[in-house]
C-alpha cells in the first residue's frame, strides 16, 4: 500500500465544485482530471489517490477505512449515519431538504404516504413533527410520485426549485440546509493526522476567503 491519502469524491453535482476547491487549496489536480472515466486516479504530486463513488456511497468507503477522507453532502450524512468524523463544512453545493407536494393535494388521513430517496431522514423528520407517515423509497425522479398518485408528498433536496415548479409541485416545509462536508475515517484521523490536518487547514482557508467575498 502506498502512503497516498485516499480521497473519496462524489460523482456528479458536487464533483466539479469540490475539484475546484482542492485546486484553490493548492493541490495540483491536472486539467484532464474531470474528463477521466477512471474510478481510481492517483496524483502523486498532490499526494492523493482519488476514488470516484456514488455520492450516497462516499461515507461507506470512509467508514470502512478504504478511503481516508471523503467529500459528502450533509443530506447523505444524515441518511447514512456513518461512524466518521465530519470536520469541515465546504459550503459548496448549497441546497436544502424539503417536503413538497401538489398544491391542492388531499391528505390521505389514515396513512399519509411519503416518497423519498432519504427514508431515514424523512422518517426521522415526520416523527419529530409528531406525524406518523408511511415511507416509500425511490431512487430518483421523486417528483413523479405525487403526480401519478404513488405518494401524497415527497422529501427531496431542492436547489433552485425549478424541477418542482415545472412539475406543478409546491414546497410545503423546509427541513434543513444542506452543504458538502469533509469527512474523515476515525483511524486515519489519528494515523495520518499530519496530512489530514493540513488538508483541512488549507481547505478551510479557501472556504473562509470565499465567505468574506460573499
Amino acid at each position: 500500500m502506498s502512503s497516498l491519502l485516499t480521497v473519496a469524491m462524489p460523482k456528479g453535482r458536487i464533483f466539479q465544485e469540490a475539484v475546484e476547491l482542492l485546486r484553490q487549496a493548492g493541490y495540483p489536480l491536472p486539467p484532464e482530471f474531470e474528463d477521466s472515466r477512471k474510478l481510481i486516479i492517483e496524483i502523486e504530486e498532490a499526494g492523493m489517490r482519488f476514488i470516484l463513488a456514488k455520492p450516497m456511497d462516499v461515507p461507506t468507503y470512509v467508514e470502512h477505512g478504504v478511503a481516508d477522507v471523503g467529500i459528502a453532502g450533509k443530506d447523505v450524512m444524515l441518511e447514512e449515519e456513518r461512524d466518521v468524523y465530519e470536520v469541515l463544512d465546504l459550503k459548496i453545493s448549497d441546497c436544502y431538504l424539503a417536503v413538497a407536494g401538489l398544491p391542492e393535494q388531499k391528505e390521505h388521513s389514515v396513512a399519509p404516504k411519503i416518497a423519498t430517496k432519504y427514508p431515514n431522514v424523512a422518517a426521522h423528520y415526520f416523527r419529530e413533527q409528531g406525524e406518523q407517515v408511511e415511507i416509500i423509497k425511490l431512487n430518483g425522479s421523486i417528483e413523479l410520485a405525487p403526480l401519478i398518485g404513488l405518494a401524497d408528498r415527497i422529501v427531496d433536496i431542492v436547489s433552485t426549485g425549478r424541477t418542482l415548479k415545472e412539475n406543478g409541485l409546491v414546497e410545503l416545509e423546509k427541513i434543513r440546509e444542506i452543504t458538502s462536508r469533509i469527512i474523515v475515517n476515525p483511524a486515519s484521523y489519528r494515523m495520518k493526522a499530519g496530512v489530514i490536518d493540513e488538508l483541512v487547514k488549507r481547505l478551510s482557508k479557501v472556504v473562509e476567503s470565499k465567505e468574506e467575498i460573499k
Binding site: M1, E63, H64, G65, V66, N185, P186, A187, S188, R190, M191
Partner: peptide
C-alpha cells in the same frame, strides 16, 4: 483511549 493501526479503518 483507542488504538489504531495503518490499513485498518476501525480502532
Amino acid at each position: 483511549f483507542e488504538g489504531y493501526t495503518n490499513e485498518l479503518g476501525f480502532p
